[in-house]
Amino acid sequence: MDEIKTKIVDILKDVTGLDDAGQNADQDLFKDGVLDSMATVEVLVNLQDEFDITVPVSEFDRSQWSTVNKIAQQVQELE
């Protein structure tokens, strides 16, 4: 799980260009403006490549993907 989270944080930093992105694993990435639609898509594409999963692009319930912890949870379920 920790390995997944580290990878997710790396992706977030990469996409947003922010060094502190995802520092707090419970930070709401949408509310705090870390991710807009475009960045979200980039994260999803990266997750798909990194973990070899198929992510739902549209009905991707934002409340289920809003923090690093939640993303890790989703990735684990999809793997």
Partner: peptide, 28 residues
């Protein structure tokens, strides 16, 4: 946003049709 914009962005980025982030967003 969810059914047109996001899907289009996703397809463009996945297939690397356009490289520039700004251009992709604008096309969307």
């Amino acid at each position: 946003r969810d059914f047109i914009y996001m899907r289009l962005m996703f397809t463009i980025i996945k297939h690397k049709w356009i490289k520039n982030r700004v251009t992709i967003a604008n096309v969307g």
